[in-house]
Design a protein around this nucleic acid. Structure first.
Lengths: 336, 336
DNA sequence: CTGAAAGCGCTTACAG
DNA sequence: CTGAAAGCGCTTACAG
């Protein structure tokens, strides 16, 4: 019924105490401030009965904190980011924090815009999968001593917390498997983004070729345009597979590229078997249910989220600056 | 460098005007308030150069609005909700609004908690896929004249905006297809939630059986526990399929149940073909890439998000109360 | 043991 | 054409 929310003033009046007293009680400082038990009980009863909830906005303005964590990713609907978002939300919620998110679509400038927007909302901490060219924006956050954790993509030039998998290693292991299977013509289908994670996936591929004595061929590393439509990707990949009938193995550097690739193969009627194998980054139902099942590099979502949240709260709760940590987990090669 | 953000006071001082003047300029009321062009230009230059951004928290406290929309869903990592979240984010962003989200996991009480939390943050509008028993919480929002749009699941007892597909119709059409294919023993695999959307999916199934002269069998409607693990679901479904070798068609009422079902079938080595067909709710890559491809009821994510956002902004921008609308779209049966 | 008052950074009715 | 001042709902240093 009440169209207007209760304020601390209303509670104070009703309880016949000052708003100071109510504030101390709300914030659990009643004992420390020697408020009498009688008063505490009276006030708490009124708060309970009237369903009073402190106005967080006023609190934010006064304290400079918001209990909100900003999450900036490339695309919240990508299963990898959506999974991380879900797990982070859960863990943050348990500590009384909420998440506000935004997708950058890798648009340059969007990261800066989002950070400014979040700043003006007094966001307490930032979890960011940085787009290309986000260094300076994140640098400014660090200078202001804001808690920041990057994930998925590191920015090597910055001394900042990071959680991710060893992409070099993951690619290397995938290639090692191909080498064991006597593959000779192994393509890497990747994306034309100059971000560390993607670069490492390429580096691991190259190093493995060297170590296993497979000649590197420039024309077997395909960098697909990032903002390409699904349809265009499928067309391009069909052309690729037709152009290179000698291919006997493919590593896809992202889950959406793998999906496009599988669609291309399905359309062509080209089977996946001992003569033609594929491995995809980021495991998912689609790979488990595919016929045949698709081998994949699984990122440990739960461990990644755990580390992110722990690093965030380490920083939030400590007065002194905490030395940034780089947490590198292992991607798990799941052979099927 | 500046560890402390600029305030309107700093700008006013630097420009040698009052904060009132600066505020008018920031809020585009300069002309209306007859501020001289010289002053406007001077102030705007300083704002630009110093990169001043108004503190949104202070603004919220003063105006009672936050330019934040609250999104409450069952699970943000479910592809359906993640897709909606992405599209809504985009459309809201263009109007200067941001999204704060939370997952309820269908826990009773969680909705109330989230609404209260969002209220205390002065969220301007609510987009909710309501869990069981959320009626009274949403009712309280309506009484406070907050903009609210429900989606995915309607609450028939409330006079509130809603966007969703015609689930009765979608199930009916799926069953019609099965009838055309001369199916006789058609199971519905659904979830044990008493929410409208799920009930309608069952109702459409039943009505179609009547209309197409197929006997209804209680034992072919399987209500799986909502919070069941993937593994348990697969075990239960394998048992089901073994118990009912006479089954010749299955309609899965949610995408995750369909995925569990496909895993069960794969594990059993039971093929999907003319003798045993399936249709799934909520299309996705996993169904397109499956061998054979799986027919599905596609929800038009883009149209759903468009309607949600339009309804939200209709309410936000109008002074008078707007009559609630129920937008019922069609699910599209994609036969493969 | 408790309260009056300042102040967080804005917006806006009012005054001139 | 522009400014001083009140007030949004809190927290907290200070006073008694």
């Amino acid at each position: 019924m009440s169209t207007k929310a209760l304020s601390i003033k209303d509670i104070a009046k009703k309880a016949n105490v000052s708003i100071t007293t109510v504030s101390f009680i709300i914030n659990g400082k009643a004992v420390e401030k020697n408020i009498s038990t009688a008063v505490i009980e009276r006030v708490e009863k009124i708060i309970e009965e009237d369903g009073y909830k402190p106005n967080q906005v006023a609190r934010s303005l006064r304290t400079g904190t918001s209990k909100i964590i900003g999450l900036i990713v490339e695309d919240i609907s990508n299963p990898f980011f959506a999974g991380i978002a879900r797990l982070i939300e859960d863990k943050a919620y348990k500590k009384g924090y909420k998440i506000i998110y935004s997708s950058t679509e890798n648009q340059p400038g969007k990261t800066k815009e989002l950070i400014n927007l979040f700043k003006s909302r007094q966001v307490d901490a930032y979890i960011i999968a940085p787009a290309e060219g986000a260094e300076s924006d994140i640098e400014s956050l660090l200078q202001e001593k804001k808690p920041v954790v990057l994930f998925d993509r590191s920015l090597p030039s910055l001394d900042v917390n990071y959680v991710g998998i060893d992409n070099f290693d993951a690619s290397y292991n995938a290639l090692k498997q191909f080498a064991l299977d006597k593959k000779k013509n192994i393509a890497l289908i990747t994306v034309d983004l100059d971000i560390e994670q993607i670069n490492h996936r390429l580096d691991g591929y190259k190093q493995a070729l060297v170590d296993f004595n497979i000649p590197f061929r420039e024309d077997l590393v395909i960098k697909m345009p990032f903002n390409q439509s699904r349809e265009d990707a499928v067309v391009q990949l069909i052309a690729l597979f037709e152009l290179h009938p000698e291919l006997d193995a493919v590593l896809f550097a992202t889950n959406y590229l793998a999906i496009s690739g599988l669609m291309a193969l399905k359309e062509m009627g080209k089977p996946i078997n001992n003569e033609f194998s594929v491995i995809a980054y980021d495991d998912g139902d689609v790979f488990k249910l595919h016929t045949p099942q698709i081998s994949a590099v699984e990122q440990p979502l739960d461990a990644i989220s755990d580390h992110i949240i722990n690093l965030i709260f380490q920083q939030i709760s400590s007065k002194e600056p905490v030395a940034p940590q780089k947490v590198i987990l292992s991607g798990k090669l799941i052979l099927r």
